[in-house]
């Protein structure tokens, strides 16, 4: 390969500041995925070594959580709709869809709070479990709690996007901020599907 060329090779990546934020979010999500990964791996290791791990479906309400899962998947859809609205220059549509998405997140959190109180009333807490291994409760609350924290951040994030949308900060050419928020929200949904599978279903 010859190194010395009179013609300048273009840099391999665009020098557009717009793309930095998106890449930054991807990088962040890769790191965040590792923390969920570590929690789930720890959960798997403890469960595999446990003699009295209860069958999750017998304790946790699958129907309710299935609905919560459905809700989050739908909210991913409204997120996509919001982005596509602003890409077509429709900032009213953006605000509407962002609010619906944030609201779904809020309902999700409400249902999670309901689920937690219910379980706590039945004796499943961070350190106690009438149906078997204590660590069932510990890992359950730690993992769903960590995810819930992400949803909370997401609801705040989406609300900010909606507020900025109302002020007309986004347009068809300037939809990058919405797209970045979308990355985060889809990630939170994706993680929930994993949590739902490993903690509730299997």
């Amino acid at each position: 390969m010859s190194l010395a060329t009179t013609a300048v090779e273009p840099a391999e990546s665009p020098l557009t500041p717009e793309s930095w934020g998106k890449l930054g979010m991807w990088v962040f999500l890769a790191g965040d995925a590792m923390s969920f990964g570590a929690l789930l791996a720890g959960y798997g290791a403890i469960r595999a070594g446990s003699l009295d791990w209860p069958i999750p479906q017998e304790i946790l309400g699958i129907k309710l959580t299935a609905f919560m899962t459905f809700l989050l998947i739908c909210s991913s859809l409204t997120m996509v709709k919001g982005l596509s609205a602003i890409k077509h220059g429709d900032s009213k549509g953006l605000v509407r869809f962002m609010l619906v998405t944030a609201l779904s997140g809020l309902v999700f959190l409400g249902l999670q709070a309901y689920e937690w109180t219910h379980l706590i009333q039945h004796g499943l807490t961070l350190t106690s479990n009438p149906y078997g291994s204590y660590l069932f409760g510990t890992t359950f609350y730690l993992i769903t709690g960590f995810h819930g924290a992400h949803v909370t951040v997401g609801v705040i994030y989406l609300t900010i996007i909606a507020l900025r949308g109302m002020k007309g900060k986004y347009s068809a050419e300037n939809a990058n901020g919405v797209e970045i928020a979308g990355l985060y929200w889809h990630f939170v949904d994706l993680v929930w599907i994993l949590v739902f599978t490993f903690v509730y279903l299997i």
Binding site: P10, S19, W20, L23, G31
Partner: peptide, 21 residues
């Protein structure tokens, strides 16, 4: 975490013209 987000994004996206990997 903040540092690595910065470093990775900067190195991938902000190289001067001609500065290939």
């Amino acid at each position: 975490l903040m540092g690595s987000i910065n470093y990775i994004t900067t190195i991938i996206n902000m190289r001067a013209p001609g500065m290939t990997f």
